[in-house]
Design a binder for these strands. Structure first.
Lengths: 232, 232
DNA sequence: GGCCCAATACTCCTATTGAGAGTAGATTAA
DNA sequence: TTAATCTACTCTCAATAGGAGTATTGGGCC
């Protein structure tokens, strides 16, 4: 079994508390989908992998007539996570089909290209709205931020007892600082995609064709602006 | 054989001229790697797929003692590309390992987290620099922009003869308008990654620990700013 | 009170894709 | 002239995606 970023994504969740397999899968989807996506089937496979590696332990838990699997991190798992965090991250990557269509847009119509850009903008906006929902939860009274402001950290070993809950979910307010940074980064990126896709849509709608020679001065200005903006 | 965005990425290149398999692979790497990456082996596999689909034709070309494969688009291939351009694009996705590390950063040290963020910023900057190299080429005298400004479009069927060349490569200046938009979008995104990764690095370096309670006011301000900035 | 739909809680299979090794001629720089 | 790098691919195995399949449970609606 080979370890991947997905392995550590799950391991990191297990480092905060124990989860059932289903919860782990849902939580990965909720929180890391926008920056590191994997399929549901693969997430379950990776959970088994964690046990095989000795990084987590499973036990069958009774829930009515059926059983579910509860995963708990081991000492070896905690060590593996700490070790991973000291290594260098991979290059960031984007996967934006709309830009592939834009790149080949000269072979299609202005209307289709503009529609593609609008669809990309809409998708980015929908993702952004989903993230904003988390922000509202975090800012709500009794939520993790409120807990921090009332001295409940939850992520330090010095506090005894079970974690505080909010909206039926256990909260670990001490993690909120890093999570807020992830949210800020991700929403910035999504807003950037929405913004350029939307303005590209409106730009190309002004063209007579997808190879309109009349766009030449705008293209020169655009390339020069890119060069100027990013010159180091 | 199932078609994917990669299939259409190759098909779009073939719609501008004929290429050898090696050239196609290099060109995909050069131009679409940042928005749609695939492995080298897979690109060769997809080229065979295009022939199987009847969207491209191959012929063996003699080059010294060895042969290489020259791919040419067919009428069916041109139709398939036009058809694809009318359909809706997929959701955009990011794959940013640095943000997975940030999300789980509360389990590691401040120094390691800051180093991860700096490494992510460095990688984004390197990618951005590579794109700026293209911009310089496009803006150079005799380059595609210069051609446009001298009435050479190259992408319209009305112009007879072989395409004009620049720096040993055939140029299709009419495509420059869309390409400039792709470059502007991609560089904006990369600059955004560089910027937030860099500022996150400096932010966390000011923390006493990765769950430092002293960060609470900054975290509140951050979440409120996100909510305000993106409220629709 | 019973029915239906959605959510819970997974497993399993097939097809796609990635990653890297392998082969061999051609060209460039020392 | 030799070594390294580039051209120009093929091939294989392992990783991953995507979706079908199974069965229980909880909630809402008539």
């Amino acid at each position: 079994m080979k370890v991947s970023t997905t392995t550590y994504g799950l391991l990191g969740l297990l480092a905060v508390r124990s989860w059932t397999g289903y919860e782990l899968t849902q939580q990965m989807r909720r929180s890391l989908r926008f920056v590191w996506s994997s399929s549901e089937g693969h997430l379950y496979r990776e959970q088994k992998g964690l046990v095989e590696l000795g990084w987590a332990a499973v036990e069958d838990e009774q829930a009515g007539a059926r059983t579910r699997k509860r995963y708990t991190i081991t000492a070896a798992g905690e060590a593996a996570l700490r070790e991973w965090l000291t290594t260098a991250p991979q290059e960031p990557h984007f996967e934006i089909e709309g830009l592939v269509r834009l790149f080949h847009g000269s072979h299609g119509s202005v209307a289709d290209l503009a529609a593609s850009m609008d669809a990309t903008a809409d998708a980015a906006r929908a993702m952004l709205d989903e993230m904003l929902g988390f922000v509202d939860e975090y800012l709500a009274d009794g939520g993790p931020l409120w807990m921090l402001e009332h001295g409940i950290n939850g992520a330090t070993a010095s506090e005894a007892g079970p974690p505080a809950e909010f909206a039926g979910r256990p909260m670990f307010p001490g993690r909120l600082h890093v999570i807020a940074l992830v949210i800020e980064s991700t929403t910035t990126l999504l807003a950037s995609v929405e913004s350029f896709a939307r303005s590209t849509a409106s730009e190309v709608r002004g063209w007579a064709s997808t190879t309109d020679p009349a766009a030449t001065p705008a293209t020169r200005a655009r390339l020069e602006a890119v060069r100027k903006r990013h010159r180091r």
